[in-house]
């Protein structure tokens, strides 16, 4: 059970890291995620079933997510529409595109083909399936986290960090803020799609509805993580997101298995997620107020 939650959480964490980049670093609330998650799953599933191979398939999934993010950022930059609307536009269009990618179907099974999951279980040999997957996912998500940390230590990554806080400063330093938005949003959606690709292989199918409501789930994970501890170091912030994602999956697990005592059904989980985000917002706000009162400022 605990291994299952951890594996779930670690796959989910890659998506949450993407949401963290847009919502927290870039201050660009990006809803493309609801579409690009399924895009990643669909592209990976079709690549694998059509014999392109697992790794090229996952790379392609990342690239397709990044392309979706680029479209959102360009709509926002060029047409000067609010970032929320730009994301919704791309997300809506992606629903049709995802079904096209899946060959006109709403879903596709990955049962009789080799996936990264079946390969890893093979390598694991006699180790129990769930434990093999857990070790693999720790390595996989760990690598994504470390690469992201390194990126945020580069000149470009640091500048991206300033973007969400103070766009004027970035402009004043001779950096095109539009280019930075394209980079940030496409990186975010690349990660989201990669997470979708992983989930499709883990659960054995890709579905055009896979990503519905996922951006709010990612946001819930990011916010849960922020309650764990405080830091201004990017390495700690990404750890927060990963822990938050696991915590979120654990909460949802308990909601699913023990929720029936209070008459909860699986369809209530989205309501629960929304309430979780609202409670997080309220707690964060109260904390901030208390903090500023302590320091004597209002």
């Amino acid at each position: 059970m605990i291994e299952g939650i951890l594996v779930d959480g670690l796959i989910f964490a890659v998506m949450a890291l993407g949401v963290f980049i847009t919502f927290r670093v870039l201050n660009f609330p990006d809803l493309t995620v609801d579409g690009s998650f399924a895009t990643g799953a669909a592209v990976a599933a079709m690549s694998i079933t059509n014999g392109l191979g697992i790794f090229p398939g996952m790379l392609l999934a990342f690239a397709s997510g990044a392309a979706a993010g680029t479209i959102t950022a360009v709509i926002h930059n060029r047409l000067k529409v609010p970032n929320l609307l730009a994301g919704i536009l791309t997300m809506t269009m992606l629903y049709s595109i995802n079904i096209r990618i899946l060959g006109g179907r709403a879903n596709i099974a990955l049962l009789r083909v080799d996936t990264i999951i079946s390969k890893v279980i093979q390598i694991g040999g006699s180790i129990p399936r769930e434990w093999t997957l857990l070790i693999f996912m720790i390595i996989f998500t760990g690598i994504v986290k470390i690469l992201l940390d390194v990126f945020f230590h580069t000149d470009m990554g640091i500048t991206l960090g300033a973007m969400g806080d103070n766009e004027q400063m970035v402009v004043s330093q001779g950096v095109n803020p539009k280019a930075m938005k394209v980079i940030g949003v496409s990186l975010s959606n690349g990660l989201v799609a990669l997470s979708g690709a992983m989930l499709a292989q883990y659960q054995g199918f890709a579905d055009a509805n896979l990503g519905v409501g996922i951006v709010v789930q990612g946001l819930a994970a990011v916010m849960l993580g922020e309650f764990l501890f405080r830091s201004n170091k990017i390495g700690m912030l990404t750890i927060q997101v990963i822990f938050g994602a696991i915590l979120y999956k654990a909460l949802m697990f308990f909601g699913r298995y023990y929720g029936y005592y209070i008459n909860l059904t699986p369809s209530d989980l989205k309501l629960l997620t929304g309430v979780l985000v609202i409670v997080s917002l309220v707690v964060a706000k109260t904390r901030k107020n208390i903090g500023s009162r302590k320091r004597g400022i209002q």
Binding site: G161, A162, D165, G174
Partner: peptide
Amino acid sequence: SGKLSLEHNMNICSRKGFKGL
């Protein structure tokens, strides 16, 4: 940028123009 450390702020400003990897 208040969210970034002093050294990261100075790093952004130490060279004008597009920032690479």
